[in-house]
Design a protein around this nucleic acid. Structure first.
Lengths: 167, 167
DNA sequence: ATCATAAAGGATAAAATTATCCTTTATTAT
DNA sequence: ATAATAAAGGATAATTTTATCCTTTATGAT
């Protein structure tokens, strides 16, 4: 029997409170967390299932599975079907960075195009934010490429704290 | 009689092509463009209506009107009802910046909270992106506050090119 | 060969964002 | 006062994003 809470009556209000983020879509955040988790487990030679990943990163598992499909297609992580199957990374994924994850999931929105959505915006005919945005983007790209996913995974604490850190 | 085009059959594909942006929500982009346009017109002492604004910035007018309601409530711009009414800015809005617009529309998502959506993320227990993101945010805030909206409006070309520049 | 397991994929649903329409309220001109 | 104008506000719809469920396909264990 499902217990219902008072805030279930105000879904929009709750969502507004929850949504204190941005820059990456929610899907992309899940993807980043999932990939780091996979890397962490692969460091210990373990393959992991979509369900487990979903639980560890606090994301719905079916949705996590969908995201993982994309990441596999884009060769950000690898997968095997069947028993003993799951998601993993190997040598071939070692140099992948967060930028690869963001590109696979959100596309190049964050890196390309006018941030005001102007059609005419260019170096010659820049929008009021053009050069500033360019600057910010350089920083973002730097942030997303300065370390490999493997390195990031190594920096995230040991097994016992992963959940706390990625949920 | 409405003419229908081949791409009307592929709404999702078309939308994917159109969406080459991000960092600001679409609503926020409209807001920025609208506010700059209002400033520009106010420089010439003109008040402008929601419909006109919508057309100039290439946004649906009814939706533009909604956005303007918020901006008025947050004192980013002023408005008057009735004939000769419209939206405008005066001395009291002179020091407003893009950050005020972004805050009014998107809230502080872009500035606050963990970019990966982690609950435990803090200075003491930082997520893998914590300090990098902090860096990027400093840049973004700088970009959004370094010039007042008035200054930005003054930099956008003369009346004849506004449409091209803000559409 | 058969069965169990787990990813892949398709179809559908819920929630959030973006967009439209229509009524009400305030203000000005006549 | 009355009519005309434009913003404010409410209700609703379309689109996009996020989420769920169920079937199919591949793989390993027995």
């Amino acid at each position: 029997m499902k217990i219902s809470f008072i805030w279930d009556s105000f879904p929009d209000l709750v969502s507004r409170v929850k949504k204190l983020i941005h820059m990456f879509s929610k899907t992309c955040q899940y993807a980043i967390k999932a990939v780091i988790y996979i890397h962490k487990q692969s460091l210990e030679g373990k393959k992991v299932g979509a369900k487990e990943i979903g639980q560890e990163i606090d994301a719905p598992d079916a949705f996590t599975a969908k995201i993982l499909q994309v990441l596999v297609r884009q060769h950000v992580v690898g997968s095997f079907k069947g028993p003993t199957g799951g998601f993993f990374v190997d040598k071939s994924h070692e140099s992948k960075t967060l930028k690869d994850v963001v590109l696979a999931i959100d596309g190049d929105q964050l890196f390309q195009g006018c941030s005001l959505g102007l059609n005419q915006c260019s170096e010659e005919n820049p929008c009021p934010l053009h050069f500033e945005i360019k600057n910010v983007r350089t920083k973002i790209i730097n942030m997303l490429t300065i370390k490999s996913l493997k390195q990031l995974a190594e920096e995230v604490g040991d097994g016992t704290t992963v959940l706390a850190r990625l949920a």
